[in-house]
Design a protein around this nucleic acid. Structure first.
Lengths: 210, 210
DNA sequence: CGTCTCCTTGATTGAAATCAACTTAGGTGG
DNA sequence: CCACCTAAGTTGATTTCAATCAAGGAGACG
């Protein structure tokens, strides 16, 4: 798979709506929670996408430089804010004006697009996990992630080893094991077997996360 | 932006090439470095994408479950390996057989697709950064990243604050500052001003990374 | 029944966070 | 132009949390 025309300007034929807008340092381009009606391109300067965590810390997801696109979302709202790092200009592309959206029947490439955006959000979520959480918070987030994927939300079957989990969360096996033990002692989970967990307090697990 | 049909099976009309293949636990589906001629979908089971780091540690990039697609790349080769976590079946889609690739002139949606795959790779790289590196290695990788983006590779202008860098790397301002000082004392960088750095030994900086 | 892998637990070490103070750079207005 | 003021950056002392080192337990399989 070799993708061409990355970052090129002239070759891009989707047309912009709205003027090229200018932003001063630290000025917000859009807010977390705003309706995600458009994606944007950095014309000049640098833009950061970030979000605030519950503990007051801030997680910077990415820095976007000239020619790069940002603002892709799966849901109806932005999951992060975008802010100018330095004096910057951006141009926006509204989904409703793109030919991509005009067909009611989704083409193969559109479906593919959805999947890749989904992967992108997953990767961003993974980065958030790795970036700023303690071991127990990482484990809690990991369990919630698999709870979401399960039919029975409170019963999680781990198909992977502790080593797999450790390598995914940037921890060691020992810390994974200790954190699970900790959560068990705190009454948030129960062990049916090492690989079969009952989440007895999902709310508390989610609260450990952002 | 609301994307529909995610994870649906019946609605997807890009056609598979090759049979549905079955894999035993820990069996490789493709290797890091293999030509990235296809992307794949998990039909059943769980697949992990991961790579080995220079220090011998393994970084798990993601777990993919039923209905999810994986194996998207920008370059000609896979940047990670894919392995079955448990007994799994996958189906593959070869780029050369997809209508998406048939037009020599790239449509707007294709260009968009390239950009999102690019963002995905960036996010994966970010996760790798956060996952398993020490503070100094994170800073070194960060500097190399901005060196790559600069016209003059050895002269990096940081448009962002130390706090921005800290929030991006999952560190504190103090640690960012100390790490930069360390690199300066080790003779890998020079400070022209707090925001203007000269990378006097890019090779060594890259070596600190994986 | 032994052996392997996976998992857990304990003791110690080490790296980054925290708490705290100080320095530098940049901008504003007298 | 200089003096001040503030935000940004650096440095030091201490604490904390996860890594490391080490050992033991549990289950699967021949």
């Amino acid at each position: 798979m070799i993708l061409r025309a990355l970052k090129s300007h002239s070759a891009e034929s989707f047309h912009a709506i709205g003027p090229v807008r200018h932003f001063e340092p630290n000025q917000r381009i859009y807010f977390e929670g705003d309706p995600a009606e458009m994606f944007l391109k950095v014309v000049s300067g640098v833009v950061r996408t970030c979000r605030m965590l519950s503990d007051g810390r801030r997680q910077v997801d990415a820095f976007h430089t000239e020619g790069e696109l940002f603002g892709f979302e799966i849901g109806p709202a932005y999951s992060m804010s975008a802010e100018a790092v330095c004096s910057s200009t951006v141009v926006s592309y509204h989904w409703r004006n793109l030919e991509v959206r005009e067909t009611t029947e989704r083409s193969p490439s559109e479906q593919l697009f959805s999947h890749v955006v989904f992967s992108l959000m997953r990767a961003q979520e993974h980065a958030r996990l790795l970036g700023s959480l303690s071991a127990i918070e990482k484990i809690a987030a990991f369990l919630v992630e698999w709870s979401d994927r399960s039919a029975d939300k409170s019963l999680v079957t781990l198909v992977m080893t502790r080593q797999d989990i450790a390598d995914y969360l940037g921890l060691t096996v020992e810390t994974v094991s200790r954190s699970l033990t900790q959560l068990r002692q705190d009454g948030l989970i129960e062990f049916l077997s090492p690989r079969q967990l009952r989440l007895t307090d999902i709310t508390a697990l989610q609260a450990l996360n952002s």
